[in-house]
C-alpha cells in the first residue's frame, strides 16, 4: 500500500508545486528545491546503474557466456575511465591553485581521461552518428514510393527541399530574377514557403496535440488516476 501511496503523494505534491511556481513568484523557491532533489536523485542513480552494469558483465565473464570477451572489455573500460576520472591521472595542475592536489584540469588531452575522450570516445560517437547518412539513403530508397497522390506530393516536396538545401537549388533556378512574378518558382523561395508555412503549420498542429496530451497525461499521474508505472505489489 505504502509502496504505491507515497510515490503518488510525492508526484502529486511536486507536480502541483512546479505548476503553481510558474504563475506565482512566491513559490519559485519551492520549485527550485524540487528540481534540486531530482538532480540529487539522478546523480545517486548513477551508482545503481554502475552496480547493475558490473553485476551483469561480471556474471557474463564468470559464466563464460557467449560474448564474454565483450563484457570483459566493458569492465576494463569502465574501471579505467573511473580511475582516470577519480584520480585525475595525468591531470594538468591548476594555475590558480598549484598547491591544491586534484584541483587541476583532468579533461585536457594531456590527461588520460581527456585523451580517451578526444581520441576514442569522440571519433566513436561521431562514427555512430555518421551511420545515419547510410540509413537515410537506404530508408529513402525503400520508403519513398509514388503509390498515390499524397505520396507523389511528398516526393515532389522532398526533391525541392533536397535540391534547395544545396547549391544545386541556386544553379537550377537562380537565373529566375528575384523580383519577377516567377520568383516564387525559385527553389530557395519554394523551400522557405514549404518549411515556414506548410511544414510549420503541420508541426504546430502536432505540437499542440502533444502538448495537450502531455497535460492530460501529467494530470492523470498527478491525480493518481494512472498508476501503471508503479508496482502492483
Amino acid at each position: 500500500m505504502l509502496k504505491r501511496t507515497i510515490p503518488i503523494l510525492i508526484l502529486a505534491t511536486s507536480g502541483a508545486i512546479l505548476v503553481v511556481a510558474y504563475f506565482s513568484p512566491f513559490t519559485t523557491n519551492w520549485s527550485e528545491v524540487v528540481l534540486m532533489w531530482f538532480n540529487i536523485l539522478a546523480a545517486v542513480a548513477y551508482v545503481l546503474g554502475a552496480g547493475n552494469l558490473l553485476a551483469v558483465n561480471l556474471e557474463k565473464v564468470s559464466s563464460r557466456r557467449a560474448g564474454w570477451a565483450y563484457a570483459l572489455i566493458t569492465l576494463v573500460a569502465f574501471a579505467s575511465m573511473l580511475t582516470f576520472g577519480l584520480f585525475k591521472i595525468g591531470g594538468v595542475p591548476s594555475e590558480a591553485h598549484p598547491d591544491v592536489p586534484y584541483a587541476g584540469d583532468y579533461e585536457s588531452t594531456q590527461s588520460a581521461f581527456g585523451w580517451v575522450y578526444e581520441y576514442m570516445l569522440s571519433p566513436l560517437t561521431a562514427t555512430m552518428f555518421a551511420l545515419l547518412a547510410f540509413y537515410v539513403a537506404s530508408a529513402a530508397f525503400r520508403a519513398f514510393r509514388a503509390k498515390n497522390l499524397e505520396s507523389i506530393l511528398l516526393l515532389g516536396t522532398a526533391f525541392i527541399i533536397l535540391l534547395a538545401q544545396t547549391a544545386a537549388g541556386m544553379f537550377l533556378t537562380g537565373w529566375i530574377p528575384a523580383d519577377s512574378v516567377f520568383a516564387f518558382l525559385r527553389f530557395d523561395s519554394l523551400r522557405i514557403a514549404i518549411t515556414e508555412y506548410i511544414q510549420t503549420a503541420g508541426m504546430r498542429a502536432i505540437t499542440i496535440g502533444i502538448a495537450i496530451g502531455i497535460a492530460a497525461t501529467s494530470l492523470r499521474l498527478i491525480l493518481g488516476v494512472d498508476r501503471s508505472y508503479l508496482s502492483k505489489q
Binding site: A140, R142, A146, L155, L162
Partner: peptide, 19 residues
C-alpha cells in the same frame, strides 16, 4: 552534401522505377 542529396534523389527515382 550536394552530391549526397543528388544520390538520394537518384535512389528515390530508381526505387520508383523499380516499383
Amino acid at each position: 552534401q550536394l552530391v549526397a542529396h543528388l544520390l538520394v534523389i537518384g535512389l528515390i527515382v530508381l526505387g520508383n522505377v523499380a516499383m
